[in-house]
Design a protein around this nucleic acid. Structure first.
Length: 961
RNA sequence: GCGGCCGUUGCUGAAUUGGCAUAAGCGCAACACUUAGGAUGUUGUGGGAGAAAUCCCAUGUGGGUUCGAAUCCCACCGGCCGCACCA
C-alpha cells in the first residue's frame, strides 16, 4: 500500500504515493475554496450575480439527493452519487457550460431526535456537529461544490420559506375547471357573490366563521381533518401511507401501525393525480421509477353506479348505495353488495330483525342484524393491518339485513359488510360479481351466495359457476345473460359492453363513467419536536388562522423534553402527544391578525421530514433571498422550460431508487402548486433522474452465523478463514453491525482521494449495485501512478515530456480515446470512460518519450475523474490556470478511425478470413476481395454462393448455396 | 398472486443499430529489476483438441426468428426489486 521503505523513497522521492497525493489534494482543495473556483454565477447582478460571458453559456444544473447527516459518519457507499455528479459537473464545465452544483443537508427528522435523546443533547447541537463531520469528510473528496449555495433544512432562514410554502398551499384550492390551484380568496369571492352556491344554499354572509372555515377546509390544498390515520404508538407519531410497509408496520423502526381517527393536517395531493401521472411522460426518468409512480397513483377507469335501497322507517325513495367498479359490463352479474365496515351508511340500513329466511351463515349466529354488525365492526377495528393481511385469503363478513336493488336486473341483492372492502378506496362500497371477480367468488363460496355468469368463459369451462374453481375475470370474451330493463349487452365484447352500459347508466341518471385513483391525500403532520412548526394558530372557537408572512419563521421553541411520547408498540388504545404542546408559554400567544389583539393557541404538530426536501432544488438557486423563495429570473435561467425539457427542471438529479414514490412524488406536487400560483416557471422539479446503485459489501459469518470483522478475513488456499476458523461469505449492506464498514477516510489515507474517486467510478455502471473490494482499489492507484510517471520523473520530480510530435499510432489511440470518453461522460458511463483512459495510458506508458501534446490531452481527459492530480500535472506542464475551465479535448474525426480497418469475412456466420482494408472501401470492391480470398475459397470448398451480405468496411458474410 | 428488472471468465464487469464475445480492472502465473517484495515493469490468463498453423465448444436452460443472436421472440430455471383484498 502506501508504505514504502526508506530505500524506495530515496530512489523515487517523487513517486505518486498516498502521502504525495495527500499533499497535492489538500493544496488544491484549499485553493479551490479560496478562489471560489466552483462558484456558479446567476444571471444579472446581486450577491450571486456574475459576468455575462459566463451566464451566457448554456447552463447545467446538477443535483444530488439531499444527504441526511447521520452521526455514524460516511462509509464508501455514501459518496458514490456525489462523486458521479461531480465528475459530470466538471466535465460539463470543461465543455463550456455554466454549471450549478452544490450540496445541502436534510437535517430535520426522527433519527436526529432519537440520537439527541440518547446523547442527552439538543437535536440542533448534535445535528450541526454531524453536518460538520460530513462536510469535512466530503471536502476531502474534492467535490466541486458552490459552497455559497449550501444550507440545511434546519436553518430558520430556510424553514421560514418551507412555512411560507405551506401557507401558499393552505391558502389555495384546486379549481377542476381551470385544472390548477387558485388563491382561496377567489373561491371566497365566488361564495360571497353567490356565483357558487354554498352546500346548504344559505348565503355565505349568514354563515358563522366556524362554518365558513369548515366549508373552505373542503377545498383548501392543505386542510385539517378527522380521518383514519396511521397511528404508530411505538414511535409516538402518525405516519403517511407511504411510510407504512405492506405488512402494516412503520418503515422506520418496524413498529405496528394502527388505524386511529385523529385530527391531522392533510395535503390534497389527490387533486393533482392526473397531472402527476400525465407529466411523467415528458420526463427523462428510468422507466422503472415512472412505473412505480404510475402504480402508486393507480388510475383506473370505471363507473359509479347507484343501487337503490330502502331502509327502515325512512320513506326516502332516493336512498342508494353508490359503488365504484371497473367492470360495469358485469352489472347483470352483481348478486350481492359489500360495504366497508366503517361505511357511514351501515348504521342507517340495518333493520331491527333478520328478514324472513335469512340463511344462518349470513348472520354470524347473532340474534339481530344490529348485534351482528356491531360485533363484526368491533372485530374489524381491533384487527391490525398485519392480522388483516395474514387472513386475507379467508373472507369474513356479515349480512346487514338490508337488500338493495340491482338497477338493471331489478333483482334484490343482499348487502353485507366485510373487511375485504376498504373504506379508503373508491366509494367504500362494491357491487359483488362473484362469477367474474376472484375475491367476490371466494366470499360468495364462503357465504353460499348465488353466482351468475354474464361473461362467457373463453377457456372452455362452461357457463355454470357452480362447477368453477375460481372466477372468470378475462377481458377476452363476450357478454351473456345480460338483457332486461330496456338494455341488452349480450354478444358484445367486454370493452364494447362497458361503453354501452356506461352510456345507459348516465342516460338513466343512475351512474356515470368515472376515474378513480389509488392515491390518497398526504398526511402531513407529525407529533415530533425536530421538524418545522406549522405557521397556524387557533382562536377560541378552534378556527385555524394562517399567520401572515411577516410573522415567519415560526421558530422551534425550547422544551424540557423534546422526545415524542412513545407507548407500548402494541397498545393501539393510545393517542399522540406533541412535544411542542409541553411549552405552554409558546403555545399561548397574543397576536393581532387583523381583528385586534387576541389570544390564540399555536398548532403543536410539526411537519414531516419530507417537507424540507420538497423544494430545496429551488432554494439552491437563490439561497439568501429574504424577499422571495426564489428570484424568478434565477429560476427561469436554471430550471425554466426549454427545448427538450418542456416542463423545465434540474438537468440531472442523482440519488437512490428508494425515493421512487415518497420524496419524488411530494416534491413534484409542491412544485406544481408553486407553478400554478405563479411563483416559478417550471412545472416539474427534476427533468432527468438517475438512480445510482448501492455499493454492497461482503459479510463474513462464523459457524454461529455472527458477522466477523471483514477486514481480518484471510483467504488461505481458496478458503475463507478468520482466526483460523472457516467463515462464509455473502453480499450485504455495509454497516457497523455487519462489521464490514470501509470509510472514505481510510481509503483516502491509504491511496488518496483521486484513487477513491476513480475506483468508485470504475467499479461498474453507476446504476447497478456491486460489492466493494478494497484489494481492487490498487488498480486505480496504479493507473494514477502510471499517469504521473508519464509526465514526471520519480527520482527528480522533473517533467519528462518532450516536444516531439506523437507518432501516428499514438495519435490515433489518443483521438479514439477522446471520442469514446466524451460519449461515455455524456451518458454517465464513467466505468467505460476509465477503461478507455486506461488503455491510452497503458499505450503511452510504453513510449520511450512522451510527447507533451499527448500528456496534456491525457491530463485533461482524466481531470473530471481525478481532479487533484490533474491540476498538479497541468501546472507542472507549465499552465497557470485551473484545469477546471480548460476546454475538454476534442477528437479529430479523421484520426478517430484507423487508417485501415480489419474486415472480417464470414462463411455462414463463422469467421474464416480477415482483410485489412481502407475504411472508405466501396461495397462491391470489398465483396470482390472477400470472394477471391484464398481462405474463403477453401472454406467454401467449391460450393456455389447463394448470397453475400456486405457491411462495409467491417464485415462480409457469404452464404453458400 | 400481479407487475418490473437481471443471469457473460475465478471476481467486478465491456461489447454503439442484431455483425470479430470476453475490453478495462482485480486475482492468478511466469519473467525482469531487486538484499528483499505485499513495490514497479513486461508477458500470459474462458474450456477442449493439437507440435503448430488452426479447429471445435461456450454469454442460466431449451426452443424459435435471421445470412448472422449475449442482443429480438416464446417457454422454463435461478436471483433482485416494487405493489399487494385497489373493486
Amino acid at each position: 500500500m502506501s508504505e514504502t521503505t526508506p530505500a524506495a523513497e530515496a530512489a523515487a522521492p517523487y513517486r505518486y504515493t498516498a502521502q504525495l497525493a495527500a499533499g497535492i489534494e489538500a493544496r488544491w482543495q484549499d485553493l479551490w475554496e479560496r478562489e471560489g473556483t466552483f462558484d456558479a454565477p446567476n444571471p444579472g447582478g446581486g450577491e450571486l450575480g456574475g459576468p455575462a460571458e459566463i451566464t451566457e453559456r448554456p447552463k447545467k444544473y446538477v443535483m444530488d439527493m439531499f444527504p441526511y447527516p447521520s452521526g455514524a459518519g460516511l462509509h464508501v457507499g455514501h459518496p458514490l452519487g456525489y462523486i458521479a455528479t461531480d465528475v459530470y459537473a466538471r466535465y460539463q464545465r470543461m465543455t463550456g457550460h455554466n454549471v450549478l452544483h452544490t450540496l445541502g443537508f436534510d437535517a430535520f427528522g426522527l433519527p436526529a431526535e432519537q440520537y439527541a435523546v440518547q446523547t442527552g443533547t439538543h437535536p440542533r447541537v448534535t445535528t450541526e456537529a454531524n453536518i460538520g463531520t460530513m462536510r469535512r469528510q466530503l471536502r476531502r473528496l474534492g467535490l466541486g461544490h458552490d459552497q455559497r449555495r449550501s444550507f440545511a433544512t434546519i436553518d430558520p432562514d430556510y424553514y421560514k420559506w418551507t412555512q411560507w410554502i405551506f401557507l401558499q398551499i393552505f391558502n389555495s384550492w384546486y379549481d377542476p375547471e381551470a385544472k390548477k390551484a387558485r388563491p382561496i380568496d377567489e373561491l371566497v369571492e365566488q361564495f360571497a357573490s353567490g356565483a357558487r352556491p354554498t352546500p346548504d344554499g344559505r348565503p355565505w354572509q349568514e354563515m358563522t366563521a366556524a362554518e365558513r372555515a369548515d366549508l373552505l377546509s373542503e377545498y383548501r390544498l392543505a386542510y385539517a381533518s378527522d380521518s383514519p390515520v396511521n397511528w404508530c404508538p411505538g414511535l409516538g407519531t402518525v405516519l403517511a401511507n407511504e411510510e407504512v410497509t405492506a405488512d402494516g408496520r412503520s418503515e422506520r423502526g418496524n413498529f405496528p401501525v394502527f388505524k386511529a381517527n385523529l385530527r391531522q393536517w392533510m395535503m390534497r395531493i389527490t387533486a393533482y393525480a392526473d397531472r402527476l401521472l400525465d407529466d411523467l411522460d415528458a420526463l427523462d426518468w428510468p422507466e422503472a421509477i415512472k412505473l412505480q409512480q404510475r402504480n402508486w397513483i393507480g388510475r383506473s377507469e370505471g363507473a359509479r353506479v347507484d343501487f337503490p335501497i330502502h331502509y327502515g322507517g325512512e320513506a326516502d325513495g332516493d336512498a342508494k348505495i353508490t359503488v365504484f367498479t371497473t367492470r360495469q359490463d358485469t352489472l347483470f352479474g352483481a348478486t350481492y353488495m359489500v360495504l366497508a365496515p366503517e361505511h357511514e351508511l351501515v348504521e342507517k340500513i340495518v333493520p331491527a330483525t333478520w328478514p324472513e329466511g335469512t340463511p344462518h351463515v349470513w348472520t354470524g349466529g347473532h340474534a339481530t342484524p344490529a348485534e351482528a354488525v356491531a360485533e363484526y365492526r368491533k372485530q374489524a377495528a381491533a384487527k391490525s393491518d398485519v392480522e388483516r393481511q395474514a387472513e386475507a385469503k379467508e373472507k369474513t363478513g356479515v349480512f346487514t339485513g338490508a337488500y338493495a336493488v340491482n338497477p338493471v336486473s331489478g333483482e334484490p341483492v343482499p348487502v353485507f359488510i366485510a373487511d375485504y372492502v376498504l373504506m379508503g378506496y373508491g366509494t367504500g362500497a362494491i357491487m359483488a360479481v362473484p362469477a367474474h371477480d376472484s375475491r367476490d367468488f371466494a366470499f360468495a363460496r364462503a357465504f353460499e351466495l348465488p353466482m351468475r355468469c354474464v361473461v362467457k368463459p373463453s377457456d372452455g369451462r362452461g357457463t355454470d359457476p357452480a362447477q368453477w374453481d375460481d372466477a372468470f375475470a378475462s377481458y377476452e370474451a363476450t357478454i351473456v345473460n345480460s338483457s332486461g330493463n330496456g338494455i341488452s349487452l349480450d354478444g358484445l365484447s367486454v370493452v364494447d359492453a362497458k361503453a354501452a352500459i356506461t352510456e345507459w347508466l348516465a342516460g338513466h341518471g343512475i351512474g356515470e363513467g368515472t376515474v378513480n385513483f389509488r392515491l390518497r391525500d398526504w398526511l402531513f403532520s407529525r407529533q415530533r419536536y425536530w421538524g418545522e412548526p406549522f405557521p397556524i394558530v387557533y382562536d377560541e372557537e378552534g378556527v385555524a388562522h394562517p399567520l401572515p408572512a411577516s410573522m415567519l419563521p415560526v421558530e422551534l421553541p425550547e422544551v424540557d423534553d423534546y422526545s415524542p411520547r412513545t407507548f407500548d408498540p402494541d397498545d393501539a388504545d393510545t393517542s399522540p402527544e406533541t412535544p411542542l404542546s409541553r411549552n405552554e408559554e409558546w403555545v399561548t400567544v397574543e397576536l393581532d391578525l387583523g381583528d385586534g389583539l387576541k389570544t390564540y393557541r399555536r398548532e403543536t404538530n410539526t411537519m414531516p421530514n419530507w417537507a424540507g426536501s420538497c423544494w430545496y432544488e429551488l432554494r439552491y438557486l437563490d439561497p439568501h433571498n429574504s424577499e422571495r423563495l426564489v428570484d424568478l429570473q434565477a429560476e427561469r435561467y436554471w430550471m425554466g422550460p426549454r427545448e427538450g425539457q418542456p416542463a423545465g427542471g434540474v438537468d440531472l438529479y442523482v440519488g437512490g431508487a428508494e425515493h421512487a414514490v415518497l420524496h419524488l412524488l411530494y416534491a413534484r406536487f409542491w412544485h406544481k402548486v408553486l407553478y400554478d400560483l405563479g411563483h416559478i416557471s417550471s412545472f416539474e422539479p427534476f427533468h432527468k433522474l438517475f438512480n445510482q446503485g448501492m455499493i454492497t459489501a461482503y459479510v463474513y459469518r462464523d459457524a454461529r452465523g455472527f458477522p466477523v470483522p471483514a477486514a481480518e478475513v484471510e483467504e488461505i488456499d481458496g478458503r475463507l478463514v478468520f482466526n483460523g476458523e472457516p467463515v462464509t461469505r455473502e453480499a450485504g449492506k455495509m454497516g457497523k453491525s455487519l462489521k464490514n464498514t470501509v470509510t472514505p477516510d481510510e481509503i483516502c489515507a491509504d491511496y488518496g482521494a483521486d484513487t477513491l474517486r476513480l475506483y468508485e467510478m470504475a467499479m461498474g455502471p453507476l446504476d447497478v449495485s456491486r460489492p466493494w473490494e478494497t484489494r481492487a482499489v490498487i488498480g486505480s492507484y496504479r493507473f494514477l501512478q502510471r499517469l504521473w510517471r508519464n509526465v514526471v520523473d520519480e527520482a527528480t520530480g522533473e517533467v519528462t515530456v518532450v516536444d516531439d510530435e506523437p507518432d501516428e499510432e499514438t495519435l490515433r489511440a489518443l483521438h479514439k480515446a477522446i471520442d469514446g470518453i466524451r460519449g461515455d461522460m455524456e451518458a454517465l458511463r464513467f466505468n467505460t470512460a476509465i477503461a478507455k483512459a486506461t488503455e491510452l495510458n497503458n499505450h503511452v506508458t510504453k513510449l520511450r518519450r512522451v510527447p507533451r501534446s499527448v500528456a496534456e490531452q491525457m491530463v485533461l481527459l482524466v481531470a473530471p475523474l481525478a481532479p487533484h492530480i490533474a491540476e498538479e500535472l497541468w501546472h507542472k506542464l507549465g499552465h497557470e490556470e485551473s484545469v477546471a475551465y480548460v476546454p475538454y479535448p476534442v477528437a479529430d474525426p479523421e484520426l478517430v478511425q484507423d487508417e485501415t480497418v480489419t474486415c472480417i469475412v464470414q462463411v455462414k456466420g463463422k469467421v474464416r478470413a480477415r482483410l485489412e482494408v481502407s475504411p472508405a472501401i466501396p461495397e462491391d470492391e470489398l465483396e470482390k476481395l472477400a470472394v477471391e480470398n484464398e481462405a474463403i475459397v477453401a472454406a467454401l470448398g467449391g460450393a456455389g454462393i447463394r448470397k453475400v451480405i456486405v457491411r462495409a468496411p467491417k464485415l462480409v458474410n457469404i452464404v453458400p448455396a
